[in-house]
Amino acid sequence: MNWDDTRIFLAVQRERTLRRAAKTLDLDQATVGRRIAALELALGAKLFLRASDGYALTSAGETALKSAEKMEQFANDLVRQSQGVDNRLAGEVRVTTTDSIAVEFLIPAIGRLHAVHPEVKVMLNTTTQLLSLAKREADVAVRTAKPENPDLIARRLARWPIGLFASKAYLKRHGEPVAGTAFAGHDLVVYQPHLSANRAHTLVGEPLQGGRMVSGVYSSLMLRAMIKAGIGMGELPLPFGERDGLVRVWPERSTAVPYDVWLVTHQDLRHTARIRALIDEIVAAFRQNA
């Protein structure tokens, strides 16, 4: 079982369909199907069963999976360790963060990096999903949670209080909410993942049940845009609300948990020149603008 066969096997196991696996591998679906059939023939074992919801591993497939994951780990380690001694200020760096952090901090950092080192290409992925640095899905992450993996190096870039914000136009129409009324008579916009995670349904400690839930969004940038448009009130880290010209409602209140921003990379990559150069620009962007 060579590495090329292994990555195809792992893609089918993770994506559950040939079509999705082919997309992640940048291959056509027929090729993936043929390679899986050839692998099963070479091993003399059926690795997958076709179920109603896609491909499912057989008992032989489960056994093969353990070895395949070890092979993947070794391959990723080899690439990271090779990159770790790369002194060229050229090549690709993959970065993942949220859309608001990208707009305010990473895009200016990338611009400054390009002005000095034009041969470095930054692939920016703005997503709420936690991409794996250990599996080389990204080289650098700017996250709002500190990772637990001991192989990752994390540096806190910022810690901001989270307050309640509204636009001037909204407050002119509706007035300020009265504390203790659970937002009675007011329109609210919320970051939906917080509600989906079964957190207490409050904004800066005030219950929501008296208010009208206008929208739940999955993007911090869209949350900011809705509050700025006067659609409703919502929670934001203080620097974002202030940058958008919003009014902080109940300035004495903030959430129990602040908004932390962490810069994360794998320890094998910390000395790679192009990654180090981008990290330095990101750190500078937070120092100047946070």
Rank of each mutant, 00 (worst) to 15 (best):
P147M: 08
G210E: 00
V204H: 04
M123F: 10
R94M: 14
V261T: 05
M71N: 10
Q129E: 15
F165N: 03
P207N: 09
V190Y: 02
Q267H: 14
R94S: 13
T58E: 07
L278A: 07
A277G: 09
E40D: 04
H114V: 14
G54W: 06
I8Q: 03
Q73N: 12
T96S: 04
S59Y: 12
A64W: 10
P207K: 08
R248L: 07
R159G: 13
A229P: 02
A45G: 02
M222A: 11
L157A: 05
L221I: 10
K46R: 15
D151S: 14
A38L: 13
R94C: 12
I275L: 05
V12S: 06
S100A: 13
L152C: 03
L269C: 09
N76G: 13
G44F: 08
R287Y: 07
V103D: 10
L188G: 03
A141T: 00
A145N: 06
V257M: 05
A200G: 06
L133S: 07
L113I: 02
H271S: 14
H266C: 08
V178R: 05
K172S: 07
V85G: 06
R14N: 12
K121Q: 12
T127S: 14
T24H: 15
A22K: 01
P207V: 07
A21C: 11
T255M: 08
E15K: 15
R274I: 09
W250G: 01
E69W: 06
L195Y: 10
T272E: 11
E148L: 15
V283N: 03
N125T: 13
G205Q: 02
R155L: 12
R50I: 09
Y191M: 02
L47I: 04
D53C: 09
I110E: 09
A284S: 13
L269D: 09
Q288P: 01
H174L: 03
E40T: 07
V95P: 02
R34W: 07
E15C: 14
T181N: 06
R248E: 08
L65H: 08
L164M: 10
A225D: 15
G216Y: 14
R80W: 05
Y218H: 12
F74G: 01
P147I: 05
G245I: 11
R35S: 06
Q13K: 12
V178N: 00
V12Q: 07
L152F: 03
N149Q: 07
Q13T: 12
E119A: 13
A38I: 08
A277N: 07
A56P: 04
Q73S: 15
A197S: 15
L27S: 03
A138G: 05
S132Q: 04
G232I: 04
E72V: 03
L57G: 03
A284T: 13
S100M: 11
T272N: 11
A42K: 15
P237F: 01
G111H: 12
L236M: 08
V190Q: 01
L39F: 00
A197V: 13
S167G: 05
V257H: 05
F9M: 01
A68E: 12
T202E: 09
H194R: 11
R136D: 04
Q192P: 03
E148S: 14
D99Y: 11
V140L: 06
F183N: 00
I227K: 08
T31F: 05
L10M: 09
E281Q: 14
G91H: 05
M233K: 01
A184W: 05
Y170P: 00
H117Y: 13
V142A: 05
G241D: 04
E40M: 07
L221Y: 14
L171T: 06
L188D: 02
A138P: 05
L152D: 00
D4E: 15
R270Q: 14
